[in-house]
Design a protein around this nucleic acid. Structure first.
Lengths: 170, 170
DNA sequence: TCAAACATGTAACACGTTACATGATTTG
DNA sequence: CAAATCATGTAACGTGTTACATGTTTGA
């Protein structure tokens, strides 16, 4: 997912790997905060895939590699952005990453993705509710507790997306 | 973390790798659901570390490797269980995994861990609030939105832990 | 002048997924 | 008798972390 975050940053402006790391720390850090050991190899891969190009310059005696996104990179980024928000029940980070860049999507598209997201949450909740009724009698108290936390999380997320996200996208 | 889940299962009863996978699907699956390609290598490692032992039997012509946890394994598991619930702002799965097995902890210990967890959540929330005030003027609407979601998540989690978890542990 | 910040990267290691590979038994 | 379930595992691949390795400039 790091690669998509980096592409997203480059949608805004050209940057060096170092700047991307800095930018992360004041924007995505609380849900994604990659290390240099992840950022530099990711940039290399993006270059090999032909999604970004790199301009080497020397500024104040320091080597700088300024990356920029090209048309293919933009297409790949937008395709990712326009795909369903939720990819698993666990991966909240990638969901937030997508919403973070939603300004690059036409309002009706982001609205439809958010609507889909709410329906997915409701469906996940339903499955979990079914699991609960199946195991409620045999499960131990703390075990059931984690399941109920999951259920309440779904309620919270469904309410939050409906109240804060859906109207914002239109 | 898979290794700790497997150790936790073995605290209850001896099992085969296959059974552990099945047990996961009706217990931890919505926050951790490892594949066989993760379970079998994990069991191998646990054996190499001397935390579990394995009894090979043949039942109905089928090879069965029944694993059991030993004293060292129990000690390692309990040490993990008694360590702070939150390890990062992102990793909700490992937090839930710990709570899932809280019955193996003395009530005063689980209560103190939950208390610590609430304080950690409050501290994370405070940091995020500081970040928000720093970037609020320059951040775009959807970007700020993901940040506000984080903030509301912390409120939700703090309230949930205080209401549902703290009294249960005592 | 010394530490912090700027700037880039690799190597070892950990750990997860999917697909592949095998073979027995049970059930419709 | 065929398909589902039981049962174990490996290999290739992806991707992340930490620690290492290097060198410059800026500011106290």
């Amino acid at each position: 997912m790091t690669e998509y975050i980096l592409l997203g940053f480059l949608m805004e402006r050209d940057m060096t790997g170092y700047e991307m790391k800095q930018h992360m720390s004041i924007s995505t850090s609380y849900f994604v905060d990659a290390s240099y050991g992840s950022i530099y190899p990711s940039l290399k891969r993006l270059g090999q895939k032909g999604l970004v190009k790199c301009n080497e310059t020397v500024e104040n005696g320091k080597l700088k590699k300024i990356y920029s996104i090209n048309e293919r990179g933009k297409a790949v980024f937008l395709k990712w952005l326009a795909s369903p928000i939720l990819t698993s029940t666990t991966d909240i980070s990638s969901a937030l990453a997508k919403v973070f860049f939603f300004r690059h999507l036409p309002p009706e598209k982001s609205a439809s993705l958010i609507g889909q997201c709410v329906r997915d949450l409701e469906s996940y909740k339903k499955s979990l509710l079914e699991l609960r009724s199946k195991v409620a009698d045999q499960a131990e108290s703390f075990e059931l507790c984690t399941l109920d936390f999951g259920l309440d999380c779904y309620d919270f997320a469904i309410r939050w997306c409906s109240e804060h996200l859906l109207n914002k996208a239109e």
